[in-house]
Design a protein around this nucleic acid. Structure first.
Length: 111
DNA sequence: CTAGTGACCCAAC
DNA sequence: GGTTGGGCCACTA
């Protein structure tokens, strides 16, 4: 299936950086299908290791809930990624950009 | 083919 | 800033 392209992109996320579902979707050619990205990540087999924890939603927050979310947050914090009190990430500084120049998914970010 | 679901996103209140 | 509702598309049964 097409999940592989999603994983491939996620694996390209460098250390200390994060990417939004929308961004991954766009890079994967599934522009506008951010939903599918999350769907793909959900179906990630444990046989392969990918930094799925570096993938977050457009709001800079973790879409998961429960222990998984906590785990993800811990992993991100270990990569020097800062979480705000609301559990949000500063996309302006930590969002991964494959040399993009404009069009940021994050419209308004308040510190 | 039809119906149900989803680790989302955007626009309002 | 937090929650609610609608819409989008791909995948599975």
């Amino acid at each position: 299936v097409k999940y592989e392209i999603i994983w491939n992109l996620v694996k390209q996320i460098p250390y200390g950086k994060v990417a939004t579902y929308g961004q991954i979707a766009a890079l994967a050619g599934l522009e506008g299908h951010a939903r599918f990205v999350g769907y793909a990540l959900h179906g990630v087999p444990r046989t392969i290791t990918i930094p799925w924890h570096r993938v977050i939603n457009a709001q800079g927050r973790i879409s998961l809930s429960g222990v998984s979310a906590k785990h993800q947050r811990t992993l991100l914090e270990k990569e020097n990624i800062i979480f705000s009190v609301a559990g949000r990430i500063d996309l302006k500084k930590f969002q991964w950009k494959r040399r993009m120049n404009s069009s940021l998914p994050a419209k308004n970010q308040k510190a």
